[in-house]
């Protein structure tokens, strides 16, 4: 009974934490999620040849992260590579990039953007739920106060990405 009680208390505490997290640090969570998701994804082999072995994150549209991205990745690596953050407002400005975050501001442009990066070694992550259906690789959504994401394995495979099944375990799969 004691264990049971402690477990309940524990769960309660964990849930409380998650609640506050969604309110205060939604984008911090998402920033961290880039790295976490990257752990389960393999880029095409030549993806990092042109970038001097840097991992380049490009934020498209209105930057929802503020300084969070820069702060986090100043001290953290993705795929054992230093991370450089680029911010662009127009898809036209996209150059070398490994992860493209599509802010909610680009919601209408999504088809254009997907087409633009199609078959490129760029992991597309959208902040808008449902973009994965549009051809984006991953989109974030919130459910029950928790950050979730969809994944479009078909699109990823088409762009020569491979991923761990473990990713599928926590994501919602979209075709």
């Amino acid at each position: 009974m004691t264990i049971h009680r402690y477990t309940l208390i524990f769960l309660f505490i964990v849930c409380g934490c998650l609640e506050s997290y969604t309110q205060t640090a939604e984008y911090e969570m998402k920033a961290v999620a880039f790295e976490k998701i990257s752990r389960f994804i393999e880029w095409p082999p030549d993806a990092f040849e042109k970038t001097n072995n840097e991992f380049i994150i490009t934020v498209l549209g209105k930057n929802p992260f503020g300084k969070i991205l820069d702060e986090i990745y100043a001290s953290h690596q993705i795929k054992n590579k230093n991370v450089r953050i680029k911010y662009i407002s127009n898809i036209q400005d996209l150059d070398e990039c490994h992860l493209l975050f599509i802010a909610r501001s680009e919601k209408s442009e999504i088809k254009k953007i997907v087409a633009r990066v199609k078959y490129k070694p760029i992991l597309t992550v959208s902040d808008e739920e449902g973009d994965a259906k549009e051809g984006c690789f991953i989109d974030f959504f919130e459910d029950d106060g928790r950050l979730h994401f969809d994944i479009n394995p078909k699109a990823m495979k088409a762009s020569h990405f491979s991923f761990d099944y473990k990713l599928l375990q926590v994501a919602r799969i979209v075709n």
Partner: peptide, 15 residues
């Protein structure tokens, strides 16, 4: 344990 990796990575207590 294998199946616990991703829940752990994404702090998915429920999972």
């Amino acid at each position: 344990g294998e199946y616990c990796i991703s829940p752990l990575v994404f702090n998915d207590v429920k999972g």
